[in-house]
Structures are given as structure tokens and as C-alpha cells.
Design a protein around this nucleic acid. Structure first.
Lengths: 149, 149
DNA sequence: CTTGAACCTCTAGTCACTAGAGGAATTAGG
DNA sequence: CCTAATTCCTCTAGTGACTAGAGGTTCAAG
């Protein structure tokens, strides 16, 4: 288990080899000792940490959040309010994204269901994309403070 | 309406000024004529196209897809099968992402609901991330993790 | 000892923008 | 016409989280 090569660590963690090296380069993962020839040799601590990161990434946490959570878990006496706050923020973000995607899904469904498989000129897909151009929906411009059309 | 500045086009389309220039640079949007001093002057066709692009982006289409859809709409006699195919692929992608995010949401909910607001050592948030036993990845030799995003 | 897989560093590319520097043009008011 | 404010210009570089490839070195098995 100790003295793993990067390939073995990759297989055991499910994180690709270049990604492990990338994590090291951005200080997400401690640089391991090297073999006499200069190749990385990992211990079980690295594997544990990588799995933590991978699990967190699967849940959509950013690497900065995971760094913060990892730092917290190194100080077990502290209050876990910060960890809770990070997780709740992530939950809200995920819920917001689900809501957005469901609206998108509804519109895409309308699009493809109305497609009569004719020619482009009558195509609902393209028409819908063009038509909605007439609606000035949720205006998020914010780039020109003076006047708006 | 004709001879808009880039700022006005931005306000009317909801697409930010640097993004409009970026679209021009990657040939998503025709380069407009210039004023004597070299500033861009847009017509209504540009506005229509930009709104098409923005709407498509809101639905999650990639710029390559939108380029293809635009090219199709310039040839109204063609079959719209290609447009339909692009939209259906997008719909599937969105549905796949929703499913992934809902699994993520469930796990995040379990996380924060079990947090007892004590100290880090007992924190469910951090514990859950560390518990790779419950993790979905069994691929000990595989090299292709799938991601929820 | 040879072979071939796995490893090394480094650069650059991905997607769709965003930020900022440093300067030129335009517009509104006087 | 002059000035000041605003908008515009090009260009480079940065974002997040990797991924791909070149060109070379080390390791483990036979």
C-alpha cells in the first residue's frame, strides 16, 4: 500500500495521472517523496486525500472549497460552522442549477416536439431560437449604466 | 435603429461588449462596418443574430452548435433533420445533467441535515466527504471517471 | 540485458468568456 | 470651438479544472 507509483494511485483513487500532477502543481496535494530515479512515491495519506477531493468534485465543490474543508478537517476541535456554510452554499448552488436546467429542458422539449421534420424554413427548432429574440426577457445586461433601449 | 454602436447593441441584446467583440473574433458574428474613426457600427441584422446566439446559449447550446444552426437557417430549403438532431442531443445532455445534479443534491441534503453544528471532528459534512466507502466509484483499474457538472 | 510500459517536465490547448492596460474616438454641454 | 466625460479601440493575459502532446528518462518483467 505504501510507496505507490502515480499510476497505482490513479487506479485506486479514480483520478487521472495528469490530474494528480496538476493537483500537486496547485498545492491541492502534497508533493510526495521521489524514487532514486525521480519518480513520485505515494503513501496511504495521499490516497485518502485524493479520494476526499474526488468525492468533493463529484458533488460539485470547487477546489478552493475542498482546500478549505481539508484545512478544517486538520483542526478537529474547531466548530464546523464553516464546513456547514460551505456545504449549504453548494446545495443552494446545485438547486439553482437544477431549476435553471429544468426550465431549459421544458423549452427544448417544446422545440423538438413541435418539429415536423420538414424544411429549415418551417423548423420549430430554429424558429424558437429566433422568435425568442423578440422577447426582452430577464435583462441581465448591466454593461451600460446610462441608457437602455 | 441602424448604425448602432457596440454599447447600444450590447444594451439591446443583453450580450456584454467584450463578448460581442469575442464573438466577432471567433467568427460567430459578422464583422460590421466601421465609423471614420474606426468604431464598429451595427445594423439590425447583427442584433437579430446576437439575440439568436444569446437565446441559444441560455439553452446551453455550444457555440459550435449555434454556428451550425445559423448556417442551417441561412439555407431554408434544406431538411431540418440536422437542426432536430442538434436539439435532441442538447435535450439529452440537459436531462443527463439534471439527473446527475439531483443525485448530488440528495447527498448534499443528507450532509447538511445531519450536521449537528458541533466541532469538526464530528462534522457530517467532512465525514461524508471522507467516507469513500459510500462513494460511487468502483473502477479500481479504469481511467475514465465521469463527472457531474 | 533488453524491451516496453510507465514515468518525467514542459508547453499549449480546451470553453466561453472576463479583466485590465494604455490609448483613440465620440458626444454633450458651454 | 473647446473641454470633459464617456465610450470605444487593440492587445495580452487570466479564469477553472483539467486534457493533450512532444520528447526524453526510469522501472519492472522476462
Amino acid at each position: 500500500m505504501s510507496d505507490m507509483s502515480i499510476g497505482r494511485l490513479s487506479a485506486l483513487s479514480g483520478v487521472k495521472v495528469p490530474t494528480i500532477r496538476y493537483y500537486e502543481s496547485i498545492d491541492m496535494l502534497d508533493a510526495p517523496p521521489r524514487s532514486p530515479g525521480g519518480q513520485r512515491r505515494y503513501g496511504p495519506g495521499h490516497l485518502e486525500r485524493l479520494r476526499f477531493i474526488r468525492h468533493g468534485r463529484e458533488l460539485g465543490f470547487g477546489l478552493d472549497d475542498l482546500r478549505a474543508l481539508q484545512d478544517l478537517s486538520a483542526r478537529p476541535d474547531q466548530s464546523c460552522d464553516e464546513a456547514d456554510r460551505i456545504a449549504r452554499r453548494q446545495l443552494q448552488d446545485v438547486e439553482r442549477r437544477i431549476a435553471g436546467l429544468e426550465a431549459v429542458r421544458a423549452e427544448l422539449l417544446r422545440m423538438v416536439e413541435r418539429c415536423s421534420h420538414g424544411v429549415v424554413d418551417e423548423c420549430r427548432v430554429i424558429q424558437t431560437l429566433s422568435e425568442h429574440a423578440l422577447c426582452v426577457h430577464h435583462d441581465q445586461a448591466g454593461q451600460t449604466p446610462s441608457k437602455a433601449g
